[in-house]
Design a binder for these strands. Sequence first.
DNA 1: CTAAACTCTATGGTAACTATAGAGTCAAGC
DNA 2: GCTTGACTCTATAGTTACCATAGAGTTTAG
Lengths: 144, 144
Amino acid sequence: MVTIESSIKVRLVKIGELAKLTGCSVQSIRHYEKEKLLATLRRSDGNFRLYDSATVDQLKFIKHCRSLDLSLAEIRQLIALNQQPGMGCEDVNRMVDSHIEQVALRINELQDLQDKLMALRNSCASQSTVKECGILQTLSVTQK
Amino acid sequence: MVTIESSIKVRLVKIGELAKLTGCSVQSIRHYEKEKLLATLRRSDGNFRLYDSATVDQLKFIKHCRSLDLSLAEIRQLIALNQQPGMGCEDVNRMVDSHIEQVALRINELQDLQDKLMALRNSCASQSTVKECGILQTLSVTQK
DNA sequence: CTAAACTCTATGGTAACTATAGAGTCAAGC
DNA sequence: GCTTGACTCTATAGTTACCATAGAGTTTAG
């Protein structure tokens, strides 16, 4: 039996072109496949991966998520949620909220760090020798 | 020949006590040794690492540097510089300056990310279904 | 038909550790 | 002297999201 679908010609691309279309590296794509974020539609006779345009979109979605620093595990969750259109999307909101919180925490940490580094930097007046360097002296003092 | 030093009794501690004294984990200490940041003064007959109080200070120095997020490679440099008391300390200043710059960059990146995440979060009004979730829709749209 | 360009899998490397296994060491109590 | 528990030893695998490489096979343009 030949289905209608099987007779429609679909443009399939190899991994290199998928990479160009999305701006991902070839290795990343293979990595996403291994991590089950992206499926390979099928293979050529010579075992090359072949992708359709839906996969291009899927990969763009992944790339967008990565640009927001979502982990592959989080993206996997989002993809799974996306496949349950009828469910409530509280889980999606929760994930984004917690991600925002983590980023905020990290920013605060780095801001503290920045303050400490500036103070450290101010403890040395550049034209000094290693022996008298305020930075090294400060680093040698046990902190609170 | 017996030197004066060899007859002075020095209190030596094993790795577990060094860990307690400094707040580092035992594994970290062994890791720092492997990375040549910390030398083991000597070993007991049973091959246990033994440390003196100078090593305690050295490790505190390392810990202080790590709390400022300096890499082990940077710390290794600082230690080397510290052993050349007569030299100018411009290199120390340069390292701290560049570190400050890197942290500033990272803060800016995270701030951008935070803005994007907030915008994303605002695209969904919580009580929605996955199908209508503004977050998932936004993530599916190709960005600039 | 050949050479360049592409793709395949498998493996090792990145940073700074943490965690584990399996074996040996040490100190105290009986 | 012996056991028991706490400690230590080395070596290895795992963490994260890839990148780099080797060695082999595939495809395509000229």
